[in-house]
Design a protein around this nucleic acid. Structure first.
Ligand SMILES: [Mn+2]
Ligand SMILES: [Mn+2]
Length: 559
DNA sequence: ATAAACTGGG
DNA sequence: TTCACACCGTCAC
DNA sequence: GACGGTGTGTCTCCCAGTTTATAA
């Protein structure tokens, strides 16, 4: 039933009414094939039990796992046409396998997930003497319930009617399986069917036998622990979350990055709560560039300038992105002024600027400006990051999808797992070299067109197929010199994460002059952002034509 | 009464 | 979970 | 005017059916 082809998991045909079960079994067997050593004996036993159960029982469990809740009224599970056994019987079977709990005790704060507003209000007014009016919103009822201490009890008791219910007890196991398969918790069980329906298309990449997202159980545990802390942000006190987070010692760089982001986020929460010292400590632990900036800003506010300067001296500029360096340079400039030995503010090259006044457009200011500036011979496209990123994705397609060991481990990836890591370039030197060579010998335009034709529609981290029309692609490749593309791609590749954004809003082509120009539009009240300033600086440095257009409203009185 | 938001399902 | 922008306030010149 | 900080919209297939919020 579970299907793999050429050593790759394959989505089930929709002809099979139990397609979702087939997909789940595919996922499970793929994980067991590659990750069996990362599962406990208990977990393997649970899976064996499930896979040996009657088909209808398996199907119902997967239906429940795929839905958002972990708690269900039996009534919510009765409508599945492809499941022919009575639901109570199946739930009973699943209970005997230890996958489901029948008639679970439901705490009052979970009632809202299980009942609609009307039912919730009815329950509220039956258990709480101070009744709420018929019009009370669901949030209001929830609040009121929370202020009273009510004992947990089965749903049937809450409703004092015959309302059978069941809770999944195996959700953690299935989340774990999903994580081990996808390498993230963002993708869901429905990934298979959405692919089968054709809404997602992924580039097929040969998966090596060693292709797996995790190598030790501890890595999976840490990922799950970090994720739980993100989810708890609403319900658990900050101090407790900090304590839990700090007890985690990441065992690899990848987990370390997620850990750093969590700690940074906790630091920001602490900062906003006025817990300055806690925030500073967390920023120091985090090690993220963003955290260093926050640390410096907090120190600037609360510590003597000498202390800030000392901290600045310890910063390692080489490990920081240009974006971080810019922020740090500004701190440096302010602090040195305070200490009496002024150091110049960071100086970036800026492009030509011009102003236009147009009526406030129906759509966004970028489109209004494009309309005002564009002519038949000098057409404008509103592309922002899409054009350059798409050209990049098309030219470097083979590098992006090179079967580097460990980069691809399931068939639903839009990009290699190490795309944003520093070793990305080093591991694809041959493919990158080929692409650079095409740019040098002039064959790149043809290659990009070919890739565009062949790969159109395939989900790609850089390419926005709907924006890139053949006409736009043709103009861009004809009018942007290869040398300019080389310069831009070099900077992009030097730090993909940071440099994939910040490109100007518009590109204007001049067909007669065989030239082009990038235009960043700034409406009233808007201003250049740091990542935009840095790209513009680079464009000016390398004589890549660009400008900033300041827009005011011609039909507006104020200003 | 109507629109907006959410949920499930292929 | 991304990215750009809108909008607010402060500070120094 | 240059900054710093916060919040928002849009987007994560797309359709149908249900639930919720809001106003008249
Ligand atoms: Mn923009
Ligand atoms: Mn803009």
């Amino acid at each position: 039933m579970a299907s793999t082809q050429n050593n790759t998991p394959v989505a089930a045909s929709l002809e099979n009414p139990l397609y979702y079960l087939e997909n789940a079994r595919t996922l499970i067997s793929w994980v067991r094939q590659l990750h069996a050593d990362l599962l406990t004996a208990d977990e393997l036993r649970s899976l064996d039990g499930l896979l040996a159960a009657p088909t209808d029982a398996q199907a119902l469990l997967i239906r429940m796992v795929m839905r958002t809740q972990t708690l269900y009224r039996a009534q919510q599970l009765e409508h599945y046409a492809e499941i022919n056994t009575a639901v109570p019987e199946l739930l009973h079977k699943l209970e005997s396998l230890g996958l489901v709990e029948l008639e679970p005790k439901v705490p009052s704060d979970q009632l809202a997930d299980l009942l609609n507003r009307e039912e919730l209000l009815e329950v509220h007014n039956r258990f709480i003497t101070k009744a709420l009016p018929k019009s009370a919103s669901k949030g209001r009822i929830k609040e009121s319930l929370a202020t009273h201490e009510l004992p947990s009890m089965s749903l049937a008791n809450w409703l004092s009617s015959n309302a059978p219910s069941a809770a999944l007890t195996c959700q953690p196991l299935f989340d774990r399986l999903r994580l081990m398969f996808f390498g993230n918790l963002r993708q869901s069980w429905s990934e298979f069917v959405v692919t089968e329906l054709g809404y997602f298309n992924y580039e097929p990449v040969e998966l090596t036998q060693a292709s797996r997202a995790f190598h030790q159980r501890e890595e999976v545990d840490q990922y799950l622990a970090l994720n739980t802390l993100y989810e708890l942000s609403e319900s658990l006190e900050l101090t407790e979350r900090i304590e839990l987070a700090r007890s985690i010692e990441p065992i690899n760089d990848w987990i370390g990055g997620r850990y750093a982001r969590l700690i940074f986020g906790l630091g920001q929460e602490a900062e906003r709560a006025g817990e300055t010292q806690t925030a500073l400590n967390l920023y120091r632990i985090s090690g993220l560039g963003d955290a260093l900036i926050r640390e410096l800003r907090v120190m600037e506010k609360h510590a003597p300038p000498e202390a800030v300067q000392q901290r600045l001296a310890l910063a390692e500029p080489r490990s920081l992105t240009p974006l971080h360096q810019l922020s740090i340079a500004r701190v440096e400039s302010r602090i040195s002024k305070k200490l009496g030995s002024p150091k110049a503010a960071p100086k970036l090259r800026s492009p030509e600027e011009f102003k236009i006044s147009i009526p406030r457009p129906d759509q966004c200011v970028e489109l209004g400006t494009a309309q005002a500036l564009g002519t038949p011979d000098t057409p404008i496209a509103y592309v922002e990051n899409c054009l350059i990123n798409s050209l990049f994705g098309l030219l470097f397609w083979d590098a992006l999808y090179a079967p580097v060991p460990g980069a691809f481990f399931h068939p639903f990836q839009s990009h290699p797992a190490d795309l944003y890591r520093s070793a990305f370039k080093a591991r694809r030197q041959a493919q990158l070299y080929t692409a650079w060579a095409a740019l040098d010998d002039g064959s790149y335009a043809e290659q990009i067109f070919e890739c565009y034709e062949n790969k159109r529609g395939i989900t790609n981290a850089f390419i926005h197929w709907s924006v890139i029309t053949p006409e736009l692609l043709g103009l861009a490749l004809k009018l942007i010199p290869a040398e300019h593309l080389r310069l831009i791609f070099e900077r992009l590749l030097s730090d993909i994460r940071t440099h994939r954004s910040g490109f100007p809003d518009l590109i204007q082509f001049d067909i007669a002059a065989q030239s082009y120009k990038l235009i960043e539009v700034k409406g009233p009240g808007d201003r250049l952002q740091d990542n935009q300033k840095l790209w513009l600086d680079y464009f000016v440095e390398h004589q890549i034509p660009c400008s900033v257009c300041w827009v005011t409203w011609s039909d507006s009185v104020d200003e």
